[in-house]
Design a binder for these strands. Structure first.
Lengths: 120, 120
DNA sequence: CGGGATCCCATATGATACTG
DNA sequence: CAGTATCATATGGGATCCCG
């Protein structure tokens, strides 16, 4: 259950309410790349370039934007190794590994049921 | 596991590939309202106006757009009762109830962990 | 290598008014 | 009631070039 009880409607802790902070989280994931990025990082930490080649089709700008947002929410950790050439690694935080689980379930469901879905 | 094996990279059945049809499904859900709509319909069928008041903040235009997309993918069923006044009901299809499960898991995770997330 | 800076477009989202 | 029409805007997304 998402709501604890019926009286939660349109309260702060009801995700169906406009005031619920959970909507921000849902909206963070609700873009073209967040879910895929978290999925990739769940397997193992990735460097910027590795992510870009793994997530076919993402531009460096959008990849940066999305990573920053995930950092802001505390889902992703960015570590800089001051080497030459520069080395930056992105990894999931504890909380990041937390969301990764339901997101993996979603991706998995999609893969398993893809043949039953009418993808025009 | 999302990929069956490592050799799946950048193939049609690898969701990380740009050619994977699963991306369309992921992208369908990746918008501001789809997840909430499916969540609401999971509880019970809703009329248009019921949905609109339940999902605080959605405009009729956007609600229609999203519902149409969900219909196209076969997740939602639209039934018209030719009464006066007009009566239209939206309900989940079998496949719609399928996605609803992982989506509910995601919403639930968000609610449970909301206090641990840094929502600026 | 890992981006930041720019410019630009497509689309998602919205507010409001109107109709079958 | 259940939308559609219209207009307006925000943001996502992308291409390219450049720099430490």
């Amino acid at each position: 259950m998402v709501r604890a009880c019926a009286t939660d409607r349109h309260e702060k802790h009801d995700i169906y309410s406009a005031q619920c902070p959970g909507r921000d989280v849902l909206y963070l994931l609700a873009n073209k790349w967040s879910t895929l990025i978290i999925g990739a990082l769940e397997e193992q930490p990735h460097r910027f370039g590795e992510l870009q080649s793994r997530l076919q089709g993402v531009s460096p700008k959008v990849l940066t934007q999305t990573l920053r947002k995930l950092e802001d929410f505390g889902f992703v950790d960015r570590t800089i190794y001051p080497e030459v050439p520069l080395h930056v690694e992105y990894a999931l935080t504890d909380i990041g590994r937390g969301v990764a689980t339901p997101l993996a379930a979603l991706r998995n469901w999609i893969e398993v049921n893809l043949d039953k879905i009418h993808t025009t």
